[in-house]
């Protein structure tokens, strides 16, 4: 069973033909060649497939493409400015060296962005609680938490 769906991905409207068993992550990675969102565990434990669906962080590996017909999706490829300038959270990850292998990074940056969108001045505790579903197996979180904190309004002041 195939069906046409419309997704707005990183601000661009896309019409796609998808099968019933296609996941949003398959569509992003295989149809649209947006490979920022990663396939980690596939069962909702690691957060590396996190994308923003209508502004909220969700797991693209547990989302049927057909079920999100008409939605707005933002991936890591879509948060930098149109002039190519990095998003403040991306910039801050670079400044803090909050990346080692990089596999968790897109998910962590998007989750960090979602947090700052709803709470521009989170405490360290709030940051750690919000990103607890995004696993990083190399850098040990310290730099990641600092990077998110530094890119918050408070961090800049």
């Amino acid at each position: 069973m195939k069906k046409q769906i419309t997704l707005t991905v990183n601000g661009v409207k896309r019409e796609l033909f998808v099968a019933s068993n296609e996941l949003l992550l398959n569509v992003l990675r295989d149809h649209l060649e947006l490979t920022g969102a990663k396939y980690g565990c596939g069962i909702g434990e690691c957060g590396s497939c996190t994308v923003l669906l209508d502004g909220e962080p969700i797991l693209a590996c547990l989302t049927l493409a057909m079920a999100v017909d008409g939605s707005d999706v933002v991936t890591i490829e879509g948060i930098s400015g149109s002039d190519g300038r990095l998003h403040p959270v991306q910039e801050s990850f670079l400044n803090h060296g909050a990346v080692q292998c990089g596999f968790c990074t897109p998910g962590l940056i998007l989750t960090g962005k979602a947090l700052l969108d709803e709470n521009p001045q989170p405490t360290e505790g709030e940051i750690r609680e919000y990103i607890r579903g995004n696993l990083c197996r190399c850098t040990g979180y310290t730099q990641i938490v600092k990077a998110i904190k530094d890119s918050s309004v408070k961090g800049k002041a």
Partner: peptide, 14 residues
């Protein structure tokens, strides 16, 4: 088992 895909198609109704 491959947790990266849903191996079988199904009908989908909304």
């Amino acid at each position: 088992i491959n947790s990266h895909i849903l191996s079988q198609e199904f009908e989908f109704v909304e």
